[in-house]
Amino acid sequence: MSRLWRWLIPLAVLPVLALLAYGFRANPRDIPSPLVGRPAPAFALATLDGAPLSLEAHRGKVVVVNFWASWCYPACYEEAPVLEQSWRAYRDRGVVVVGVDIQDKREAAEKFVRDFGLTFPNVQDVKGTVSVDYGVYGVPETFFVDRQGRIRVKHVGAVTDDVFRATVDRLLAEAPKP
C-alpha cells in the first residue's frame, strides 16, 4: 500500500468524528421552531371560568401565550407565580398573558389556578389543536407575540422574571401597530 493511502485511511475518521462531536454537543430538545417570525395561529376557546377568549381580540397588544399543565412539576409551578406577577406589573401597559392548559384534567387545572391565585385568563385545549398549531412539544412552553400578531420568541422551560421582562420590554419598545 502506498504511503498516501496509509495516511488517508486514518484521516477518513476525522469527518465522522466531527459529525459525532457536533451531534452529541447539540441539545436534542433545542429544536428551532419554524413558527418564529410567522403569524401566531389564531384560537378561540373558553376560559376555565367559562368566558370566551380569542387571540384576535388582543391584536395590537403584546401577548404572552403560555402552555402549561397541572402535572408539569416543577417547571410550571416555578413559573406560575412569575407569570402572575409579571401580568400584574404589565397589564396596564398593553400586555396580555394567556395560559393554555394542555393534556390535563379540568378539576386539576382549576385547582392549579386557584392555588396560585392566577388572575390572567386561562383556557383549556381539550383536543390538542392549539398545542399542535403552536408546535408544542411539552410544557412549559411560552410564545411571545408582538403587536402585529407575529410570534417573535419561543421560550422552552420555565419563564423567569428576567426572560419575561427582557422580551416584553423589547416588544413594547417597538413601534405600535400603524
Binding site: K127, T129, S131
Partner: peptide, 10 residues
C-alpha cells in the same frame, strides 16, 4: 401518550 392520541384525532 395523550399527545399522540390527540394528534391522531387531528
Amino acid at each position: 401518550s395523550e399527545m399522540a392520541s390527540q394528534m391522531r384525532g387531528i
